[in-house]
Nucleic acid binder design. Structure first.
Length: 573
RNA sequence: GUCGCAAUAGCUCAGCUGGAUAGAGCAACGGUCUUCUAAACCGUAGGUCGAGGGUUCGAAUCUCUCUUGCGACACCA
């Protein structure tokens, strides 16, 4: 990874520091070596950027402290407020006035485009995301894939890519054989019409209960799925009905989350493209028979063989995923091909990538598995079959309800209460999911999700609402970025944080990690809240206009950060 | 059994490429609303960074071994 991205520091100033040091060191270290060692001090009193001299100690055979002193005397410090020597460190302090003015002017001029870059050069990036299973309710696991995928899409766009959000619906596979079998045995049309998903799940769960004692049910299910794949009219009709009814329920959740998709090419979409997959594998001599099934040997990748066709000739998950990769390759010529799927499928994606590499698919190397941590309850995996599920719709409902209660208590005169309750309630859940590194596993506790204080979505939303409130009250004041220094020291951290946004956007993209943005949003909110508590922004003095420029910039960047996470930013709450 | 991921404060987590006294939030305790929204701010308390070795001037960070937890290991997805 690019070193500059990893540090989240102020690029321009880092270059200035590098240049000054390169000149002072007179070739003892290259500019790159210097740049790599520059770091951000932990606390503001140690300056804005620092250079530790330890590495020079080896080259010069001198004590780092002495080196720091020597270098400092040779250093050209124009453009900096000061450079301090503290032990083995050289601490650089920026010229606050210039830095503030430049930063605020940039944010105000660029507005919502601040932080944007064109690194992606418009490259297509299909994202396999959300992917709920037909006839099963969406649970918290699907929330993760949905909101992570959605945020990554926004982040990619901000970095100049062209994401294609693909809801790779689980609308095919043996479970439909089971479902059809169960429906034909115990189902009835009226029940399903009234309450589609719940009824279908009921049948599904019952199937798994009964097949323990009646294993012949499994044979029947397999037969139904085989018929479905063969285009049997009855099977197809039931399948289409289940699918449509499920999609309608899903769309409500998506609307609530504010997530849209570019395509809904579920697994069924690839059904007629599987023959070609098998043909290609045959042509390349990759397919071998093993225990009656057709497999691709992956021993040279140190992986187990990939099972392509079952012994009864039916397709599997990987068969359809190969078809998907093929389709994406031809349709999009992807710059990246992303799969936002739970971390328990890590091994599977290694296999998939290996098979695609064997096939020689041009975009095989672009396949990037974007795992996220498992959600458990009481440390156990969720399972529709066993009834251990967390219904996403319920969680959102609870959160919105609680947000409504908070509003009634804290801001009862708010005009659009319901809308804001929705924005805050849903925002809390989405932000909560994206806040931490996506591979962290989550043991679900409802009360943990319903938090609106501290490092949460509402905290960031609140900081934004406060900023907007000030701007409303100061509507008549001319907001200018330049001209005046903001003498308040509390403002400095806020301005420096604002300046970190572009590098943060890049890092989030490089790591496909929404938490990088979330963490930034918290940091910016924190510095702003501190500033807000510390000084009176609307005081009538010479710096008023500059302070308002800062408030405006904070509001802009907070709103944009939240947008990148798929969270709304109400102006009042 | 093999492979993968993890282990940091009571809880949930940060800790960027090894660097200056290991940081937040929640919970606990105390303080701050006649003044821009107290969903906020300030303070107190709380940690031999799972254990042991190695590399290094320097290790929570890199490496090895072990322990514990979770996950994956072909006819589910």
């Amino acid at each position: 990874m690019d070193n500059c991205l990893g540090r989240k520091i102020r690029m321009d100033y880092k270059q200035k520091v590098t240049a000054a040091l390169t000149a002072a060191l007179d070739g003892q270290l290259t500019a790159d070596e210097i740049s790599n060692k520059i770091e951000r001090p932990k606390t503001s009193d140690k300056g804005d950027l620092a250079f530790p001299t330890f590495t020079l100690a080896k080259v010069l055979h001198q004590a780092p402290q002495q080196i720091a002193k020597d270098v400092a005397t040779k250093l050209d410090t124009t453009g900096f407020e000061k450079v301090e020597v503290v032990g083995p460190y050289l601490n650089f302090f920026f010229d606050k006035n210039t830095f503030s003015e430049e930063t605020l002017k940039t944010v105000l001029t660029e507005g919502a485009d601040y932080g944007k870059n064109e690194e992606g050069a418009g490259g297509n990036v299909p994202i396999d995301m959300s992917s709920p299973n037909i006839a099963k309710p969406m649970s918290m696991g699907h929330l993760r894939s949905t909101v992570i995928g959605n945020s990554i899409a926004e982040i990619l766009t901000k970095n100049g890519y062209h994401p294609i959000k693909d809801n790779h619906l689980g609308d095919w596979g043996t479970q439909f054989g089971k479902l059809i079998t169960a429906y034909k045995l115990w189902g009835n049309e009226a029940d399903v019409k009234r309450d589609p998903i719940n009824k279908l799940v009921e049948y599904y769960v019952r199937f798994h209960k009964e097949d323990v004692e009646h294993p012949e049910l499994d044979d029947e299910a397999r037969e139904w799925f085989r018929k479905l794949e063969a285009g049997d009219p009855e099977a197809h009709k039931l399948w289409a009905w289940f699918r449509e009814a499920s999609l309608q329920e899903f769309s409500q959740v998506y609307e609530e989350l504010g997530v849209t998709f570019d395509t809904f090419n579920g697994e069924a979409f690839y059904n007629d493209k599987l023959e070609e997959v098998v043909q290609i594998l045959k042509d390349k001599n990759l397919l071998v028979e093993s225990q009656g099934a057709q497999v691709v040997d992956l021993s040279k990748y140190d992986l187990n063989p990939a099972l392509i066709l079952k012994s009864d000739g039916a397709s599997l998950y990987i068969t359809r995923d190969i078809a998907t990769a093929l389709y994406r390759d031809r349709t999009y010529a992807p710059a990246k091909n992303l799969y936002v799927v739970g971390s328990e499928q890590a091994y599977y994606f290694k296999q998939l990538k290996a098979v695609l590499t064997e096939i020689g698919l041009p975009s095989a190397s672009k396949l990037q598995y974007v795992p996220f941590g498992l959600i458990t309850v009481d440390g156990k995996k969720l399972s529709t079959r066993s009834g251990r599920i967390i219904l996403l719709a319920k969680v959102l409902e609870e959160s919105v309800k609680l947000a409504g209660e908070e509003i009634n208590e804290k801001n009862p005169d708010l005009p659009n209460k319901e809308e804001v309750a929705h924005q805050v309630g849903v925002g809390a859940i989405v932000f909560g999911d994206l806040k931490n590194e996506r591979t962290n596993a989550i043991d679900f506790v409802l009360a943990d999700q319903l938090k609106f204080e501290g490092e949460t979505g509402p905290y960031v939303q609140y900081a934004h609402a406060r900023a907007e409130s000030i701007l409303r009250k100061a509507a008549s004041v001319d907001v200018k970025a330049g001209g005046n220094e903001i003498s308040d020291p509390e403002a400095w951290d806020t301005i420096k944080t604002l300046a970190d946004f572009p590098a943060t956007v890049k890092m989030a993209c490089a790591e496909l990690e929404p938490s990088v943005i979330a963490k930034f949003a918290i940091r910016l909110s924190k510095t702003f809240n501190k500033y807000y508590a510390h000084s009176k922004i609307l005081a009538e003095d010479a710096e008023l206009s500059a302070r308002l420029a800062l408030v405006k910039a904070v509001s802009t960047v907070l709103k944009e950060s939240l947008r990148l996470l798929g969270v709304q930013a109400p102006d009042e709450m």
